[in-house]
Simulated scan of single mutants.
Amino acid sequence: MREDNVIEVRNVQKKFGQKKVVQDISFNVKKGEIFGLLGPNGAGKTTLLKMMTTLLRPDEGQITLNGFNTLSQSRQARQQFSVTNQTAAIDQDLSARDNLRLFGRLNGLSSQASRIRADELLTAFDLTQLANQALATFSGGMRRRLDLAVSLVGRPKILFLDEPTTGLDPRTRIQMWQAIQALVAQGSTVFLTTQYLEEADQFADHIALIDHGQLIASGTPNELKQKLGGLQLSLTVTELAQLSQAHAIVQDVLKQPISVSEQTLVSPLGGDALPAIIVILNQLQIAKITVSHLKLETPSLDDVFLKMTVGKN
């Protein structure tokens, strides 16, 4: 194991019955990174995460956390991380402050240290005014903030986050990410799954994209976007009735896959982008198809996701 690798996943496989859910996946996560695991529903993300957190045994391959093998050294491996799942692990009968103090004691903190840590986290997650209220009064966003706060009590070396901001309002999502970034700034490593590709694009240092249990691509967000190559054309047709005809024109000129969202066509451009755009605009004019919006843009992580996963069987 390299010293800068906090997590190493080597040729990991998992089957349920005859179905291969995770197929020969390998990647590394370096210290102090935010590493994003992306993939469509059923891609194998949750199964892989459960194996990394010792809840499932891989059929083949190995996983190490800070050098500890999750199978042969499971107790030491579990001491390296904390997990925040999609469902909160907090005690519904206790207040936010009491939950944090309880988990502080469970993490080996003294009574005084657990009180100090609880107050720090209540402040960081804007929960101070609600600290002594019953959790029955908490909204879903408040519970998610408390759940993440609980997972940070022991300042874990590795934090696994399973879709940490799903269902949260924008303000709460910003608070969550501020807390995650503060943890990374202190030297921790974060491994997360998320449905929000713009979050992965903005915050993740590296990304692994999986589909049907296989690793499709990995790299920095920019490296993944560069794999699609060059610029792409985004064109919005004014009249919905003209969309299919516009689609046929763009398809005929570019001979590239085209995605459609409402009245907007998006397609990658080849090397001779300007001549192709001129031809498209001329043909649209001849066909009397009006365009309300046209722009050239670099591919987004959403484009990478759709291009590399949709329709692969």
Rank of each mutant, 00 (worst) to 15 (best):
R10Y: 14
R101T: 12
K295D: 12
V9G: 05
R117Q: 14
E297F: 07
Q226W: 04
R10P: 10
A88T: 11
F138M: 10
F81K: 08
V291E: 02
L274D: 04
P170N: 05
V304K: 01
H206K: 13
D303I: 00
S111N: 13
V83C: 05
G44N: 08
V190M: 02
T70A: 10
K225D: 00
Q195D: 06
V279P: 00
Q245E: 14
Q92H: 13
T165M: 01
L233Y: 07
T193L: 11
G311M: 06
R78L: 05
D126F: 12
A134Q: 14
T172Q: 14
L296Q: 10
K288Y: 04
L274Q: 09
K14F: 03
P58E: 02
R155C: 10
I25Q: 08
N313M: 11
D98F: 05
G219A: 07
S139Y: 06
F68V: 02
L254V: 00
Q202H: 15
K30R: 15
F305S: 04
V253E: 07
F81A: 08
A241W: 00
T189E: 06
R2L: 14
L274T: 05
Q232G: 02
S244Q: 13
F138N: 06
F81Y: 15
N132C: 09
R78T: 06
I280W: 00
L102N: 07
T298G: 09
S26A: 10
G108E: 10
P275V: 08
N132I: 03
